[in-house]
Design a protein around this nucleic acid. Structure first.
Length: 271
DNA sequence: CAAAGGTCCTGCTCGC
DNA sequence: TGCGAGCAGGACCTTT
């Protein structure tokens, strides 16, 4: 489900409701996510004040004075603020009960998500230490991408989806940004000019910014913190559009599997 | 052969 | 032959 725009939308949605609040209680209903939820979290967080809600790539970072709670939504995770009397639903695995008696709950049917605790400086955590730059930061541009791709041969789509290259670009936005750049998804990363990498970096940034402004993309089950869907699905040009006409040239959009991910492209526009 | 928005980890291949 | 880097595929889950 969530790529960077959906995670950022979630962050913006929950931050005003939970920042500055004390944790009244921590509820772990299903500890077996991608990694086990630490079983001492309730003691660690009880009575502590949540200072801020940050994001690094697709990781949400809830900071406390004595450490950071790391949340990842995996493929099917979502966070909601609910009232104290809200019904517990299937796949509600984790919950922070807040000082105002409301709750931040994590729902994640596929359980690829994660809830972890670290007292290290966050940039040193093993999951975050080798992440590439934020796509919306100045460190991310065409020269950087070109440098990353020119000595490798993997498909460019795989390159931009690797978190060590750049964070936050998942399957939807990889497909969309490559279409907007007129670059074929399977083109080897070392066969793309610096100029075309500049276009690609620009389009990645633009598509992510647009998607955030639309509240993300709702395909099947992503809902924002307030229960509304994201509206960027209406702006998708190729993702999920197999056999539909290319919005540029009318040729049928093709789909294929690349590295076990569905890939959509216009065979005429993209080279 | 089902596919789904993520991504870490393992083990293979290749070049030095 | 050994080593490291790059790479492909598996693994983790449930729902439609």
């Amino acid at each position: 489900m969530p790529e960077l725009p959906e995670v950022e939308t979630t962050r913006q949605g929950i931050a005003p409701h939970i920042t500055g609040q004390r944790i009244r209680q921590v509820v772990i209903r299903q500890p077996r996510l991608r990694w086990p939820i630490p079983d001492d979290l309730p003691q660690l967080l009880k009575g502590r004040k949540l200072l801020s809600v940050g994001r690094r790539g697709k990781y949400l970072l809830l900071t406390f004075h004595h450490g950071t709670l790391i949340l990842h939504l995996g493929m099917s995770g979502s966070l909601r603020i609910v009232e104290a009397d809200a019904r517990v639903q299937k796949h509600d695995h984790f919950e922070l009960r807040l000082g105002d008696d409301r709750r931040l709950k994590l729902r994640d049917p596929r359980r690829f998500g994660a809830v972890l605790w670290t007292e290290q400086p966050i940039s040193q955590h093993p999951l975050l230490a080798s992440l590439g730059p934020e796509p919306l930061s100045e460190a991310f541009d065409g020269a950087y991408l070109h440098g990353q791709g020119k000595h490798r041969r993997i498909a460019v789509k795989q390159l931009i989806m690797e978190s060590k290259t750049v964070v936050g670009v998942g399957n939807i936005y990889a497909n969309e940004s490559l279409f907007r750049s007129a670059i074929h998804p399977t083109r080897p990363s070392n066969r793309i000019s610096a100029v075309r990498y500049q276009t690609l970096a620009d389009e990645i940034r633009k598509v992510l910014v647009e998607a955030i402004s639309q509240g993300g993309t709702t395909l099947r089950d992503f809902l924002r913190q307030d229960g509304r869907p994201g509206y960027f699905a209406q702006k998708l040009l190729v993702y999920g559009k197999a056999e539909e006409p290319c919005p540029e040239c009318g040729t049928a959009i093709r789909s294929k599997s690349l590295a076990q991910r569905s890939t959509f492209f216009c065979p005429r526009c993209q080279h």
